[in-house]
Amino acid sequence: MSRFLLYVLCLLVSSAALAAPVDLLQSYETQARQANPQFQAFSAARGEQLYHAKRTHGSGKSVSCAACHTDNPKSAGKNAKTAKEILPLAPSANKERLTDAAKVEKWFKRNCQDVLERACTAQEKGDFLAYLLSIK
């Protein structure tokens, strides 16, 4: 019995560690529906707009996702301050991307604050992921 439980636990742990991007989208969809009963779908086109949108930060600097991640999410970018390399965001170019839900949330929290000076909505996060996943 305990061996069976261990087996189930192993399965659960491995499935959590290897979460597919699709599961992430599903979880953002659930959140988006809770926030907005009229929720329709995620849009890769809106995600693309968000990715490229330039905005003037309170500090006066021009900021955007693309400023660090480059205009093409399949390319490696670099941290605007430290110049440290950032591996590509698009899963088609970097298969580690979008496989760790906690990591995705950590970076949405940080980067939405740095670029938009607020948290992103579940709709925005889902659109953004839909865009990244649409890149072949």
Partner: peptide, 12 residues
């Protein structure tokens, strides 16, 4: 870490 040299580097 919420404002780490101008970048949000917050951790859980």
């Amino acid at each position: 870490l919420g404002s780490h040299f101008g970048q949000d580097a917050s951790l859980d």
